[in-house]
Design a protein around this nucleic acid. Structure first.
Length: 741
DNA sequence: CTAGGGTTAG
C-alpha cells in the first residue's frame, strides 16, 4: 500500500509526517542499508525502518497494518517517468524511494539506456550488484549488455561481464540475455562470436534470429544474411517488421532485386510495407537498384515521412547528381513538419553534401549555421560533410580547422581532407596528411588512395604515384575499381602508358571506370586506334559505354584527325542512352576547328542546349576564326566567350589584339589591350613544371623564361627539337596568344 | 522491469 501522499522531494513543503514501511522479510546481516532492524517475535516478520524514519517518534504516525508493502506504485511512477524521458525526475524518485526491488533498479537502468547514458546505466548496475538482497537477473543483465553494446569504450567491460556470468552461472540461461550478448558482439565487430552465441541459444526466437541476420549484414555479408533469413523461414519462426527490415537491407546492400521484391510481397501480405523502417529499407533497395520512381512510391505510401525517409530522399537526389532537387526536398521537409520529421545529423550531412556538389558555399554556410543551432556541430557525419563542403568550395582553411576539431577522426574524415587538398592541387599537403594518417589514423581505403592518385596524375608525379600504387598493393586494394582506374589515369597522365596498360591488363573484374580510364589514356597519348578498338570491345564484356567513354573516343578522333568518324560517334550517343554534355561538344567543336571546319564548329556550339555552353567551346571557335584571319566572326565568338566567362575573358581580348596585330593594325591591337586593362582582367601566365631524373623539386618556368642557370643548354636543345620537327614536316602554328605576367 | 530494425559523410 502506498502511504506517502507527496513525492519525498516535496516533503519540506508538506508537513505531513513521513510514512512507515514494513518489509515482509528478514534482511541478511550484511545488509548495508542505513536501517534499524527490530527483532520480530517468532513467526512474525521483522520491521525494517530507514534510519531517518526510525528517529522520529513512533507516535507521530500510527503503524498501519495492511497488505505487505511493495514499491509497486513507485515502480509504476518510475516507469511513467522513464517512458516520458524524464530521467532526472525518475532518478530523484528512485533515490527517495524507501524500498527498491529488482524492478525499480531495472526500470531506472532502462531509463539510462534509453537516454544513451551507458556509463550511468552501468554504474547503477554495479551498485545493484553490491546490494546483497538483489541478484542480477536476466532482465537487468540484458540491459547491462545492451549498455555495453551501445558504447564502444564499454565493450571490453561487456566481455568481462560475460565471463563473470559464465563463471558464476547463477542465472538461468535466457533468450533475452543471449540476444543482447549476440548484439553486443555483433556491434563490436565480432560476428563469429556473435553467431556462436546464437548457435548456443537454446530456444532462439524471432528477435534472436533477427540479431543473427543483422550480424551478417553488419559484417558486409549480405548473401550469408539472406541464407540465414531463409533458414529462419524454414525453421518456421514468425518474422516481424524488424526481421523484414534487416532482410531488405541485405538485399539493398547486395543490390539483389528479385529477393528484395519477394520480401516486399511478404510485407505487403502482412500489411507491414508501410511500417517506417520497412518502407525506408524498401526505398533504399529500389533506389540502389536504380528504380527511383518505385523507391519514391514506397516512401509516398507512408502516412507521414520521418527523418530517415526524408534523408533517404535527399541523399538519393545527391547520389543521382540532382543536388537542386535534394535542396528542394529539404525545404519541403521543413515546410511539412510531422512527428519525428525534425532533421537529424544524417539529414544535415546529406543536405551539406548537396551544397558541396553544387559548390554553393553560401547555402552550405546557412545549413552549417542551422546544424550548429540544433546541436549537431559535434556530429562526425556533419563534420565530415562540412570538411567536404569547405574543401570543394575552395575554403581549405576552414576545412582544415573543422578537420582538426573533429575529435574522433574516422576513415571518412581523413579521406575528405586528403581528397580536398588533392582536388585543389595541393599535392604536397595531401601527402603530408597521408603520412600523418599512416602514423595516427586508420588504414587508407579506396577513397583515400584514389584521391591521392588523382593528385599525382594532375601533377604528373610518377614516382609518388608509384608509391601510392605500392600502398594499394599492401592494403589489398589494387583490384578495387576506383583504385584501378585512378592508377591507369595516373600512369597515363604521368607519361607511362605502358604501366597503365599493365594495370589494365591485371584487372580482376571488368568495370566501366577502368575501361574508360584506359580509353582516355590511349586517346591522350595519341594512340587513337587503341582507344577506338577498346571502345568497341566494351559491349562484349557486358559493359555499356558511358559519357566518359564517349569523351575518350571523341578525343581520340580529334587527336587522330578522324573527323567524320568522330561526328558519327557523337550522333550515336543518343542510341547508347548517353546525354551529350559540354565536354562532348567541346571535343567535337575542337575537332572541327582543328580540321578547319570552323563554320560547322560554330553551328554546333550555337546549337548547344541552353545552359550547356561554356567558355571552352567558344574559345575554340574564336581561335579557329582568328587563325583564319576572320575578324568579324572572331569578334562574334569572342563576345560569347566574354559573356560566358567574364572572369576569364582576358584570353579573348588577347586573341583579338593578336588578330589585329597580325594584320599590321597596331593601333587597334593597342586599343584592344587597353579595353582589357580597363576591365581589370588579366591573362595569368601559364606556368610549366618539369622534373628530370627524379631529383628534388624540378624547374618551374613560363613562356620565354630565361632565368634558369642552364638556359643556354636548354635553348640549344629546344632549337634542336624545333629543327627536327621542321625536318619531319611539321609547321608551327601562328602564335596567337602571348602571355602576360 | 529485459533482447533485434531503416536514413548519413569520402
Amino acid at each position: 500500500m502506498f502511504l506517502r501522499k507527496t513525492p519525498p522531494y516535496n516533503s519540506n513543503a508538506n508537513p505531513s509526517p513521513p510514512p512507515l514501511h514494513i518489509k515482509p522479510m528478514v534482511l541478511p546481516i550484511r545488509h548495508r542499508f542505513r536501517t534499524l532492524r527490530f527483532a520480530a517475535p517468532r513467526g512474525k516478520n521483522s520491521l525494517v525502518l530507514p534510519v531517518h524514519l526510525a528517529n522520529r517518534p513512533f507516535s507521530a504516525e500510527p503503524i498501519r497494518s495492511g497488505p505487505p508493502p511493495s514499491p509497486y506504485e513507485d515502480n509504476a511512477r518510475l516507469r511513467t517517468l522513464v517512458k516520458s524521458d524524464r530521467l532526472r525526475d525518475a532518478r530523484r524518485l528512485f533515490d527517495e524511494m524507501p524500498h527498491r526491488d529488482e524492478i525499480s533498479w531495472t526500470t531506472l537502468i532502462s531509463g539510462y539506456v534509453r537516454a544513451a547514458d551507458s556509463l550511468g546505466a552501468l554504474s547503477l548496475f554495479s551498485r545493484m550488484l553490491s546490494e546483497p538482497s538483489l541478484s542480477p537477473d536476466p532482465f537487468v543483465l540484458s540491459l547491462a549488455f545492451k549498455a555495453c553494446a551501445a558504447d564502444p569504450v564499454l565493450r571490453p567491460h561487456g566481455e568481462c561481464l560475460h565471463a563473470r556470468v559464465l563463471k558464476t552461472g547463477v542465472h538461468p540461461s535466457s533468450v533475452f540475455v543471449a540476444t543482447s550478448l549476440l548484439d553486443m558482439y555483433s556491434k563490436s565487430g565480432y560476428p563469429v562470436r556473435a553467431l556462436q552465441v546464437f548457435d548456443e541459444t537454446r530456444h532462439p526466437n524471432a528477435v534472436s534470429w533477427t540479431g543473427a541476420v543483422a550480424t551478417l549484414v553488419r559484417a558486409a555479408r549480405p548473401r550469408d544474411a539472406l541464407l540465414r533469413f531463409a533458414s529462419m523461414l524454414a525453421a518456421g519462426v514468425p518474422c516481424d517488421s524488424h526481421t523484414y527490415a534487416v532482410a531488405l537491407k541485405a538485399c539493398a546492400d547486395a543490390a539483389i532485386l528479385p529477393q528484395g521484391r519477394e520480401i516486399h510481397s511478404r510485407t505487403l501480405r502482412l500489411g507491414l510495407d508501410a511500417t517506417p523502417f520497412v518502407a525506408n529499407t524498401l526505398a533504399a533497395l529500389y533506389l540502389r537498384c536504380g528504380h527511383l520512381r518505385r523507391g519514391l512510391t514506397v516512401l509516398n505510401r507512408l502516412r507521414s515521412r520521418d527523418v530517415a525517409a526524408w534523408t533517404t530522399i535527399i541523399s538519393t537526389h545527391v547520389q543521382l547528381g540532382r543536388e537542386t532537387d535534394a535542396i528542394y526536398a529539404f525545404i519541403k521537409m521543413r515546410a511539412h513538419p510531422s512527428d519525428g520529421s525534425d532533421p537529424n545529423e544524417y539529414t544535415y550531412a546529406a543536405v551539406l553534401s548537396a551544397c558541396a556538389g553544387l559548390v554553393r558555399l553560401t547555402w552550405g554556410e546557412q545549413i552549417h549555421g542551422h546544424a550548429i543551432r540544433r546541436g549537431f556541430s559535434g556530429s562526425k557525419s556533419v563534420a565530415n560533410a562540412l570538411v567536404t563542403l569547405y574543401a570543394r568550395t575552395g575554403r581549405l582553411d576552414a576545412a582544415d580547422i573543422l578537420f582538426r576539431e573533429t575529435a574522433v577522426k574516422d576513415i571518412v574524415s581523413w579521406s575528405a581532407i586528403i581528397s580536398g587538398h588533392a582536388g585543389e592541387g595541393h599535392v604536397e599537403k595531401s601527402f603530408a596528411l597521408f603520412s600523418e594518417m599512416r602514423v595516427t589514423g586508420p588504414a587508407p581505403n579506396e577513397f583515400t588512395l584514389s584521391s591521392l592518385l588523382s593528385a599525382c596524375a594532375g601533377a604528373a608525379m610518377l614516382d609518388a604515384g608509384r608509391q601510392i600504387h605500392a600502398h594499394a598493393i599492401a592494403e589489398g586494394l589494387e583490384a578495387d575499381a576506383m583504385v584501378t582506374s585512378a592508377l591507369i589515369t595516373m600512369y597515363s597522365k604521368s607519361g607511362s602508358i605502358e604501366e597503365a596498360e599493365r594495370v589494365f591488363a591485371r584487372r580482376r573484374r571488368d568495370e566501366v571506370v577502368s575501361w574508360t580510364a584506359m580509353i582516355n589514356g590511349y586517346a591522350e597519348h595519341g594512340r587513337c586506334q587503341n582507344a577506338v578498338e577498346l571502345f568497341h570491345e566494351m559491349p562484349a564484356t557486358g559493359l555499356k559505354p558511358d559519357g566518359v567513354a564517349f569523351i575518350g573516343v571523341l578525343t581520340a578522333c580529334c587527336h587522330g584527325g578522324m573527323v567524320d568518324r568522330g561526328l558519327r560517334y557523337f550522333e550515336k550517343m543518343g542510341e547508347y542512352g548517353v546525354e551529350k554534355g559540354r565536354e562532348h561538344y567541346g571535343c567535337v567543336v575542337d575537332m572541327l576547328v582543328r580540321a578547319g571546319r570552323v563554320s560547322e564548329a560554330e553551328g554546333l556550339a550555337a546549337g548547344m542546349p541552353v545552359g550547356t555552353a561554356d567558355g571552352v567551346v567558344w574559345t575554340a571557335v574564336m581561335r579557329g576564326w582568328a587563325s583564319r584571319g576572320n575578324e568579324e566572326a572572331g569578334r562574334r565568338a569572342a563576345a560569347r566567350v566574354m559573356e560566358l566567362e567574364p572572369q576569364g575573358a582576358a584570353g579573348a581580348h588577347v586573341v583579338l589584339a593578336n588578330l589585329y596585330a597580325g594584320k599590321g593594325r597596331w593601333g587597334e591591337a593597342a586599343e584592344e589591350r587597353k579595353r582589357m586593362r580597363k576591365k581589370g582582367v588579366r591573362k595569368g601566365a601559364g606556368w610549366s613544371w618539369v622534373a628530370v631524373g627524379g631529383g628534388e623539386g624540378g624547374a618551374v618556368f613560363v613562356a620565354g623564361d630565361r632565368s634558369h642557370a642552364r638556359r643556354e643548354d636548354i635553348y640549344e636543345v629546344l632549337a634542336l627539337v624545333y629543327y627536327e620537327a621542321r625536318r619531319a614536316g611539321y609547321v608551327p602554328e601562328l602564335d596567337l596568344e602571348t602571355e602576360e605576367e
